[in-house]
């Protein structure tokens, strides 16, 4: 019996496609998320908007709280560790987490190196801003990619930028002669073997989801139409005035993302979305997407 092969790790990511992964900070929120139709939850002590407000060092969440959420829901539970903090990842794996997010939302533990994810039994998801970054993470063993966006802002602009960047990079590869691929791999700073696969297949070898700034059903639909295969909603749900209704609306918007009649119907009657913060005005040290490389 072969456990935790790369095939199995990417397999779970496949099962989450067309779904919504929601940030939750306690058992009650986790149940609201599951009842609303979340495909998975991300258990964390503070959602990104509060991490921004709170300041200090953002670390892996208390395992006790993650375990309580794991007991309360039947869907997969994810949790975040700091970039490069493989000891936090070891703890998450030991507690039986379904997916580890090596996340720029937490304060990085290593500014040069990411975790060697192939060594773990648990699958990893990582953020990216462009194709090169995505392929570096896949090279290290990530089984799922997501755009970084700008977490905790409620501003979709960075997620759109990152999704378009990744897609542009893939289209560029597809137009190239074989002779050009090595130079392109060098330019991207990406492993050649994976560059070759992407050039051939015309897509990433792992599912690519959207994250960072999704606050409305329309935002979710936009990201799906731009090519995301599922969405993460962090602060957007529990920082809004109507978490349960909004969560359910976003779930429907992701399944029926090309149907404006559904999008209109689920958008009507929602209370205020999270207030948000323009990503553009953020000082350098508050731009989470710049963490990692």
């Amino acid at each position: 019996m072969e456990k935790s092969s790369y095939e199995v790790k990417v397999g779970l990511a496949e099962m989450l496609k067309g779904g919504v992964i929601m940030d939750v900070t306690n058992v009650d929120q986790a149940k609201i998320a599951e009842d609303a139709g979340a495909a998975a939850v991300m258990a964390l002590e503070r959602i990104p908007a509060d991490i921004r407000a709170y300041g200090g060092i953002a670390r892996m969440s208390n395992p006790e709280m993650i375990l309580k959420i794991k007991e309360a829901v039947s869907i997969p539970v994810m949790a975040k560790c700091r970039i490069g903090h493989f000891a936090e990842a070891q703890i998450l794996e030991e507690l039986g987490i379904d997916f580890i997010d090596e996340s720029e939302v937490l304060t990085p533990a290593d500014e040069e190196n990411h975790i060697w994810k192939h060594d773990f039994k648990a699958p990893f998801v990582c953020g990216c801003r462009d194709l090169g970054e995505a392929l570096r993470r896949i090279g290290e063993g990530a089984a799922m990619m997501r755009t970084k966006g700008e977490a905790g802002t409620g501003d979709i602009v960075e997620a759109v930028r990152h999704m378009r960047e990744v897609n542009r990079g893939i289209r560029r590869l597809q137009t190239m002669d074989k002779e050009e691929l090595m130079a392109e791999a060098k330019r991207l700073g990406a492993p050649f073997s994976i560059v070759e696969i992407v050039a051939q297949e015309g897509r990433l070898p792992v599912p690519n989801f959207a994250a960072g700034g999704i606050a409305t059903p329309a935002d979710a639909s936009l990201m799906m139409q731009l090519g995301a295969e599922a969405v993460f909603v962090g602060s957007g749900i529990f920082k809004s005035d109507d978490p349960s209704a909004r969560a359910e609306a976003i779930v429907k918007a992701v399944t029926y993302y090309t149907d404006p009649a559904v999008l209109l119907e689920v958008s009507k009657g929602l209370k205020d979305a999270m207030f948000g913060k323009p990503a553009k005005g953020l000082p350098d040290d508050e731009q989470l997407a710049k963490r990692g490389w």
């Binding site: 019996m1 072969e2 456990k3 935790s4 092969s5 095939e7 199995v8 790790k9 397999g11 779970l12 099962m15 794991k70 997969p76 794996e93 039986g96 987490i97 379904d98 997916f99 039994k121 648990a122 699958p123």
Partner: peptide, 26 residues
Amino acid sequence: GSQIESFTEDITLSFDEHPFHAVFIR
């Protein structure tokens, strides 16, 4: 159990003599 208990294994088919490499996820 959870994702880390997911596995791949050859299974036996009633309609074909060759085993099938099956992926079991949660």
